[in-house]
Design a protein around this nucleic acid. Sequence first.
DNA 1: GTCTATAGTACGATAGAC
DNA 2: GTCTATCGTACTATAGAC
Lengths: 200, 200
Amino acid sequence: MTSRTRGDKAEAILEGARQQFMANGYAATSMDQVAVAAGVSKATVYSHFQDKASLFASLIQKMAATKLGVFFDLTQLHRQTQNPTDSLTQVACSMLDTACTDEQSSAFMRLIVAESQRFPELATTYVENVAKPVISQLTQFLDSHPQLHLSDPEATARILIGSLVYYIILEEILGGKQTLHMERDRLVATLVNGIVQSAS
Amino acid sequence: MTSRTRGDKAEAILEGARQQFMANGYAATSMDQVAVAAGVSKATVYSHFQDKASLFASLIQKMAATKLGVFFDLTQLHRQTQNPTDSLTQVACSMLDTACTDEQSSAFMRLIVAESQRFPELATTYVENVAKPVISQLTQFLDSHPQLHLSDPEATARILIGSLVYYIILEEILGGKQTLHMERDRLVATLVNGIVQSAS
DNA sequence: GTCTATAGTACGATAGAC
DNA sequence: GTCTATCGTACTATAGAC
């Protein structure tokens, strides 16, 4: 039993840290809060992680390594031979639904942006492990689609992702849903139309 | 002399607060730091502002009310009768240059995103006083341009701004310039091309 | 109005028992 | 390995002299 519980405390600490850092940010989260949320004493937290910054870095690195799949899974779409409009619409709606439903994905991005000055190397970790693969996969998808021959697929991928990310920031993170709402389908339709038309 | 300096302390405090809050965020900025940066004592800060949250709110409201002009000035472009491609390229490059050159505009957005959970009403202030007017002006610009008859100008405005904002986030805020750099003109050219093509 | 000095609290990190 | 108890510091906010 005890041999099977090795590392469970570390996992519980990381989970408690995730809850608190996501909710309050780095500076406003205390090690006492993390310890309580994890169900351990503060000394146990310090026995597994050198200090607060080290715990935060471990958490971000773990999330950056595992949260890619939540953001994006295009492998299923590569094999399909739909028309470009339907494929792109499906990709865009899938990304928006994930970000709007899963509270964690937008909270994670908010945390990375918030702490990008204090921990620039963690912002780089996010770019390398999340943003870069997403752009890369989407670029390959655009490039390999039979009916889409875009002059610059990587630039188009950035436009597509940027439009969706800004929609999430405005509607979900900054609360624009209340005063500045636009229907999801209006944005996606206009976005997809611009990409398809520019290729023909 | 002394009559002319009325309110100077309040202004100095807001300027000190701006420097510190922009650099460190809300929680990691102490009232001592603000007082030192403003060149006054901590008691003077508390004589002008009720508490830390009130000072922060005053700062954000002031910046949201005054920083719109820095972001955007489209009035000059309305009267010109260039072709759509040149007009849009000029608008996009102007916005990117402003955001890349002026450290404050991207730092302001980062701060709003970072504290959007702690101060949701300030995020709304930002949306109402900055994001909404920018989208509104750009929508009118797109709508009134003689050769552009877009099916949904407001959605197109969001796509345009979103692509540029995400570029700023990736390159400037998250340090992607080092590992994920794309030339500004590549993004703008592809973006403008998609908008113009979809209208013809 | 503005200062110095300080009260009261919460923080990060550690010592020492078990 | 994990706990309780604690050290030294830094924080928000205020009291009282001028």
